[in-house]
Each structure stands twice: as structure tokens, then as C-alpha cells.
Amino acid sequence: MRCTEDRGTVKVINGRYRPTGKFHYIYEHSPIFDENGKLMGITNPRDVTHIHAYGGEAQFFESLGKGKLLGTRCDNPHCEAEGSIFMPFRIHCPDCLAKNTVVDLTETARKSATVHTFMITERTGAFNTLPTPIKFVNVEFEGVCTILMGYLSVGEPEIGMRVVPIFKTQNPTFTILDLSWVPAGTKEADLPEGFTFG
């Protein structure tokens, strides 16, 4: 059963959350008996919707749906890490804690992204929305000091493989799932539904 009827949505108006619709659905408990009919416990069913702030990372998740991959750079001249580029996007430099500068890494990714390591798994946890098997890839970029986790949508991963980013520019989810990777040279026609090269 999917409880989608009047599922809650939220807007921010004047700096406050304005929720509309249902944020929880109520179900009855049911008893748990053993094979002899002895009461052992009870189920506690629940269906809730949480609200979550993206804060300073909102521009990263918004940019994915527009076909852009944003990272950040420490530009603090007094920091040991000055000039370091971070992907995943770090709002603040982890060394000096100054606010980082946002940089567009889309072209860097297109030209230099390679698979640092990977994993293929059939198993998922509850609430997974990715098709299985999931092909996890951890992607490294030229000039970027950190490594980004993602998933490969076409082909079989290998360490050292050149990959390029693809973006869910049609009906974006505004989550990290809007970013995926395919082997360099993949044709647009072979991309999953809703994804483009940006």
C-alpha cells in the first residue's frame, strides 16, 4: 500500500517551514503470538515524512538537475589547504573552516573522471530506488583532493576506467541520485530515462 493521498509537502515562507497535507498516517497495532498462541509482543506501524534542510549544499543538489557538477575550493591564503578543491562539495574548508568558493567542476569531470574503486551488489536496504545490481563507483578527478561516491548507469566498472557524469535533467529528484556516471564514449541514446550529459 502506498500512502500518497494528500502526502505532505513543504514550502519555506518568510524563513519558516509551511507544511501542507498529511505528514503521518495512522495504523492500528497488531499483536504478535507464538505458535501456541502466547502473546510475545506487538507491531508498531508508522508512516512519517521528515523535513530536511540542504542549507549551503542546496546549490549543489539544485545544479545537478541543470546538468552541472559543483565543487568547492578553499581560497583562504592563511590555510594549509589553500587551493584544495573538494568534491563532495564542502561548504566550509575542513582545515581552516573558512567558507569555500563554489567552483564548476562539470568540465573537469568530463575530461578527467576515473573510477578509483567500485563494487557491484544485488543487495539493497529498504527504501532503495536504484535498479539492481547497483554498481557503486568512487570517482577521482584531476586536481581534486577528495573522492566522490556515485553509481554507474551503463556498462561494467573497472578501476582506472574513464567515466563521464550524467544528470537527471528531466524530473530531477533533487538528491544525489540525479548524478550518475557512464563510461566515456557512451551515446546519449543509451542513457537511462530522464538523464542527459547536461
Binding site: 530536511h52 574503486t117 563494487m119 536504484l130 547497483i134 557503486f136 553509481y151 544525489i176
Partner: peptide, 22 residues
């Protein structure tokens, strides 16, 4: 990380397994 990793399969074994692969 709930924004950067959990949506990827909701499976912690996968996040660890990339280290195992390397």
C-alpha cells in the same frame, strides 16, 4: 551521510565493499 551516501542503495555493505575492492 544521509545526503551523499544513504540514497545510494540504502546498503552500508556497499559503502564498505568499495574499500574491500580496492
Amino acid at each position: 551521510d544521509k545526503d551523499w551516501e544513504t540514497p545510494l542503495g540504502h546498503i552500508y555493505t556497499g559503502y564498505y565493499a568499495v574499500m574491500a575492492q580496492k
